[in-house]
């Protein structure tokens, strides 16, 4: 007996899926902003010559790169609120987890980019009277960031895929919406297929843009960092 495909129940729930996609993008965007800022801070701390700064930053980076993101999410959602006595929504837990987690990865990209800039740039900046912070902000970072763009974009794509984990703590992202619709309509095949295709279209589009960037940087002779 061949399976009778029927997409009408899924299409009838299109607004739910659209809201889910919107929530996925919301978690991704928010975590990306916090992740980048925190990642830069972690990178600078790790590069610091003072061990009291470098060592804890290195530990945070390693722990969050080494443990599974789903374990981190459960910890921040179920354990942290009890520990510090605050209320934590699924959205908050997701943003906190994915911000710190992606910051740990972004930090290594920032560090690779900053280290890849030759010493002469620092010396030159010092020679015209800039202090460390000025040299970093005006001379080194602008050059380093260009090399980091492909790695950043790849990381952002990974982040978007990771956000599906929030469905396990009942935040209404695209995957959670799909699960709801599948249970309501008894059409899991059609619903999950459509959800997978939506993810594919959005993420593949981002990937193509990232590859275009990488190619253009390669053409201009710019080296990139991983």
């Amino acid at each position: 007996m061949a399976y009778q495909w029927d997409f009408t129940p899924v299409l009838a729930n299109a607004p739910l899926l659209a809201q889910g996609l919107l929530n996925t993008l919301k978690v991704t965007g928010t975590s990306l902003v916090f992740g980048l800022a925190l990642g830069l801070a972690l990178a600078l701390l790790r590069l610091s010559s003072r061990r009291t700064f470098a060592w804890p930053a290195g530990l945070v980076i390693e722990v969050f790169r080494t443990t599974p993101p789903l374990v981190q999410l459960f910890w921040f959602f179920f354990a942290l609120p009890l520990l510090v006595g605050i209320e934590m929504t699924a959205f908050m837990a997701a943003v906190v987890t994915f911000s710190i987690q992606s910051a740990a990865f972004f930090a290594e990209v920032f560090r690779g980019g900053i280290v890849s800039i030759e010493r002469g740039q620092w010396d030159g900046a010092r020679a015209i009277g800039m202090n460390h912070g000025q040299a970093l902000r005006r001379i080194v970072l602008p050059q380093a960031v260009k090399r980091m763009i492909p790695a950043f974009m790849e990381r952002a794509i990974e982040l978007m895929k990771t956000t599906t984990l929030v469905a396990t703590i009942s935040y209404a992202d695209l995957l959670f919406a799909a699960n709801e619709i599948a249970q309501k309509t008894f059409r899991p095949l059609e619903t999950f297929t459509v959800a997978a295709l939506i993810y594919f279209v959005v993420i593949f589009a981002f990937s193509l843009v990232a590859r275009q960037f990488e190619r253009r940087l390669a053409v201009s002779g710019e080296s990139t960092v991983r």
């Binding site: 396990t168 699960n179 899991p188 095949l189 999950f192 997978a196 993810y199 594919f200 993420i203």
Partner: peptide
């Protein structure tokens, strides 16, 4: 490669668990 790299792995797992058995 393109399909499996550009969709979240959790979506793939749930697809195999809930959707594939229909077929």
């Amino acid at each position: 490669v393109e399909f499996f790299r550009n969709t979240p792995v959790l979506v793939q797992i749930l697809w195999f668990y809930f959707a594939l058995p229909m077929l």
